[in-house]
């Protein structure tokens, strides 16, 4: 099945060449030159993935990111000009799922796009899991608390279900980067950390004292047995 990617980038040369490359990789690409145009495109029809430049002429990239997140759970890979902690972390906090730093090679990006765009909901044959008052149903792709659906993004859900599949065991950041984000080696462990923080805000009764997703210092994360 063809995945559709929306690229929001004001630099026409980068936009053109990335779009060309991704099309050659078998993806369906829509181009948008501004934040507003990108949001309009998304309104028109859903995409499997958004590539979003944070430096846009009309709207602040972080704001566009939050806006997309408000409307859908479409995975977002942000394009940043720097690797500074605050830029990356702020983007992830704004709802981005992954990031790529200029200069990047779009060809090397396709594996990650596929990993994030993979429909995780309903395509897994994993049993339902009950942890405290949370119920994780991988087959339905939903997490419920006391019967009410907890709104998770696809990446957050995938992260939770990967941990749930190994419950009781510590899963390292590297393993999570590989399974959730599609990094074959060496991703940025901040991706995992910020996503765990986002996840905790949604599923923990007290995010500052987590009982579901617990940190094992220097090793990784774990869900209780």
């Amino acid at each position: 099945m063809t995945r559709s990617v929306l690229i929001i980038e004001d630099d026409v040369r980068i936009r053109r060449i990335v779009a060309m490359t991704l099309r050659r990789e078998g993806l369906e690409v829509t181009e948008a030159a501004s934040g507003q145009e990108g949001l309009d495109q998304l309104e028109e029809r859903p995409h499997d993935m958004v590539l979003l430049d944070l430096m846009l002429p009309d709207r602040d990239g972080f704001e566009v990111c939050r806006e997309i997140r408000r409307r859908s759970d479409t995975p977002i890979i942000m394009i940043t000009a720097r690797t500074d902690s605050h830029d990356v972390v702020a983007g992830l906090e704004a709802g981005a799922d992954d990031y790529v730093t200029k200069p990047f090679v779009a060809k090397e990006l396709s594996a990650r796009i596929r990993a994030l765009a993979r429909r995780s909901r309903g395509d897994q044959v994993r049993p339902r899991i009950q942890i405290e008052d949370l119920e994780i149903a991988p087959q339905d792709g939903v997490v419920t608390r006391d019967g009410a659906v907890v709104p998770l993004t696809r990446t957050e859900f995938k992260l939770l279900s990967e941990l749930a599949a190994e419950r009781g065991r510590v899963v390292s950041r590297e393993e999570l980067l590989e399974r959730v984000w599609g990094y074959d080696y060496f991703g940025d462990s901040r991706l995992v950390d910020v996503h765990v923080r986002r996840l905790r805000k949604k599923i923990e009764s007290d995010p500052s004292a987590p009982t579901v997703v617990t940190t094992v210092r220097g090793m990784g994360y774990r869900l209780p047995e």
Binding site: R13, I14, I17, V18, V105
Partner: peptide, 9 residues
């Protein structure tokens, strides 16, 4: 960085 991105791709 931006021209370099275009060049690399």
């Amino acid at each position: 960085r931006s021209p370099l991105t275009t060049m690399l791709n």
